[in-house]
Design a protein around this nucleic acid. Structure first.
Lengths: 121, 121
DNA sequence: GAAATAGTTGAACAATTGCTCAATTGTTTT
DNA sequence: AAAACAATTGAGCAATTGTTCAACTATTTC
């Protein structure tokens, strides 16, 4: 009796055809995946996570964030630019100050969910 | 009239004391943040995202994943090791094959939430 | 208008990342 | 026991990342 879903050599054909076919369907199109991975990448850095958490409840100026995290304003500014490009934060200018705040409520949810994963072992 | 929450020089004191104090409270302890950032970092790569999605509905062997993603088995194995260390996947051995599956239902939720963030603009 | 201040930007650097290649392990088949 | 095969592992490499430094812009204050 021959099982079509296995017993094939690995080099040429999938070992488990049906499963691979099913798996193929659940993979989003590359464009979505690219954006998705970049969003996660932004959250995949302790400094940027801290910035997100700091901005969760109120806006802060670059200067505040820099002092809070013991970083240079330059470093903070660089990170904020990345986060703005990925639409995690937005900012408003008031005089020479720039006030940043979270741009998307999903971010808080993502972090909350992430915390649950981390703390559940 | 002096406003205690601003009008300080940036080098020495926070510009907005109260806000910074509030922000400080919402930042988790470093240990949690480290784990959190590493979890997001794992999801911050297209290949690993694909693997997660592929394993969302059924288990697959290394060979299947490699063929599905047009990658070497070595590359896949390397990534799976990282993902296992971060408890995104687990595996069972059956003969010479290794079957991998998602280890945590949070991962699917995280990805789903991420997709929503990406597609909502 | 000059000095001071908040923020931005680009170049440069060390550190990290994802992959390839080659060697190796462990299991099955002959 | 030898050959074949799935998977793992370590070294090495190009590419990317996070920060610092220095130069710069823009706004406020003197």
């Amino acid at each position: 009796m021959k099982n079509t879903s296995s017993a094939e050599t690995c080099d040429v054909v999938y070992v488990h055809k049906e499963n691979v076919a099913a798996a193929k369907k659940s993979i989003h199109k590359l464009e979505t995946l690219q954006g998705l991975s970049e969003t996660f990448k932004v959250l995949g850095d302790v400094t940027r996570l801290k910035i997100c958490l700091a901005l969760a409840k109120q806006e802060l100026c670059v200067c505040d964030i820099a002092a809070l995290l013991s970083l240079s304003e330059s470093a903070v500014s660089h990170q904020l630019r990345i986060m703005k490009a990925m639409r995690l934060v937005k900012h408003r200018k008031e005089g020479k100050m720039a006030y940043y705040m979270l741009d998307d409520k999903h971010i808080e949810d993502l972090i909350r969910l992430g915390v649950r994963h981390v703390s559940e072992y």
